[in-house]
Write a protein that binds this DNA or RNA. Structure first.
Length: 397
DNA sequence: GGGCAAATAT
DNA sequence: AATATTTGCC
């Protein structure tokens, strides 16, 4: 692996500038870069079209990192031959191993890149896609891909917010971000995607809100006739809201925009994190999750009452919502003997858990997904055991 | 420059 | 097949 930083005082050409002048830095010692790499198997991405794909790194890929002003902020995979060659060269003199697994038999392999062929029929030339083509001697090179790391994205969002979504244009964003290695094109591209995601997110939120509203209206209409909405035919049975609307929305959303509460299927751990969050989580900060987990306590009431706290992953600051619940006041002897649902935090019985789930199902004010799709009993039990809460005795009559 | 859409890369 | 990023063009 190699770390590369841009040379200071590169030429002003925006297109070539960032990538055109790269110097290999001594191998990074702290290894922090590596820590950021292989998390795709630590977390399972949510199966939602909204999440960004896992950050994968081909072992045969040379990783280039800009440092300097944007230290640790983003990575650029050097697919361009000059980068590769330069890196290798410097590398040799520094005695640093080239990316392990790099195709030895073809050191000048360029991964699915393109070469510019001088085209007689036009001054623009024509791109021809070519995988594993030596770039030696070719002129045009596709710019190495800038990877928008979470940190970089955070800065981007910060800049956008500072400017206001309306006034956020590439040049201003770039200015505020203060990362000269990026080009306006990089920003523009990211902005394009950002807007696109934001738009779809807002659309979905609106849909969800709409469904929710109509649902409420309908519910009100069936209950108290006087308050019924005259515009809403009470006979119409509304279909359930699209499940998608209730899925957690991911990082692309404008943080300022109110996101629907993230529904927790207690006692499961927090939902798998979109790749964008990996960094934060790996660094021990669960703020992203915690912040998004506002609102609805989904801990089944009987369990909460029995002193259960929703579990959290080791080392993670629990959401205030999930702080241990003080034990309930002692029951009278009579209550004790009559209560079928009595829970013992140390020894929850299967039936108690079952009852807890049933309890959830019976509560219309709890999030719909929770009621529609409660955790399976086995999952609950397994999770409890995993949490070391107690041994769960088999159900008894 | 900004923004959109096609082209590419992974 | 989908998504991220680059490039071309208006």
């Amino acid at each position: 692996m190699l770390a590369v930083e841009p040379l200071r005082g590169s030429n002003g050409d925006e297109r070539e500038g960032a990538m055109g002048s790269l110097a290999v830095v001594d191998d990074f010692v702290d290894g922090s870069l590596f820590e950021d790499i292989s998390f795709s198997d630590l977390f399972v991405g949510m199966d939602d079209g909204d999440v960004l794909p896992d950050l994968e790194l081909d072992p045969a890929e040379i990783l280039v990192e800009f440092s300097g002003a944007a230290e640790g902020l983003f990575r650029v995979d050097g697919a361009t031959q000059d980068v590769v060659e330069e890196a290798e060269e410097r590398n040799a003199s520094h005695g640093v191993a080239v990316a392990s697994g790099m195709a030895e038999e073809d050191p000048i392999l360029v991964t699915a890149t393109e070469v510019w062929s001088a085209s007689p029929e036009g001054d623009r030339g024509r791109k021809s896609s070519a995988a594993a083509v030596s770039m030696k001697g070719s002129q045009g090179k596709r710019k190495a891909k800038v990877e928008w790391t979470p940190e970089l994205h955070r800065r981007f969002v910060q800049a956008v917010e500072q400017l206001g979504i309306d006034k956020a244009v590439p040049s201003r964003i770039l200015e505020l971000m203060g990362i000269d290695c990026l080009t306006r094109h990089n920003i523009a591209s990211h902005l394009q995607k950002y807007r696109s995601h934001r738009k779809s997110l807002l659309t979905r939120q609106a849909e969800a809100a709409s469904w929710s509203q109509r649902r409420q209206m309908y519910a009100a209409g069936t209950g108290a006739k006087r308050g019924a909405n005259p515009w809403l035919a009470p006979t119409v049975v509304l279909p359930p809201p699209p499940a998608q609307a209730f899925r957690p929305l991911h990082v692309w959303g404008h943080p300022a925009a109110a996101e629907p509460p993230l529904v927790h299927m207690w006692p499961f751990p927090p939902p798998p994190d979109p790749p964008y969050w990996h960094h934060h989580f790996q660094r021990g900060s669960r703020e992203g999750w915690v912040a998004m987990t506002q609102g609805t306590p989904c801990l089944p009431q009987p369990m909460a009452a029995a002193g259960f706290a929703a579990p959290h992953l080791a080392g993670i600051v629990p959401h205030p919502m999930y702080r241990p619940v003080p034990p309930p006041p002692p029951m009278s002897k009579q209550q004790e003997s009559t209560s079928q649902l009595q829970l013992d935090a140390a020894h929850p019985t299967k039936e108690c858990i079952d009852a807890a789930i049933g309890d959830v199902l019976a509560k219309p004010w709890l999030p719909l997904p929770l009621r529609l799709k409660p955790p399976s009993l086995d999952s609950v039990l397994a999770e409890l055991q995993k949490q070391g809460v107690s041994k769960v005795p088999p159900a008894s009559g």
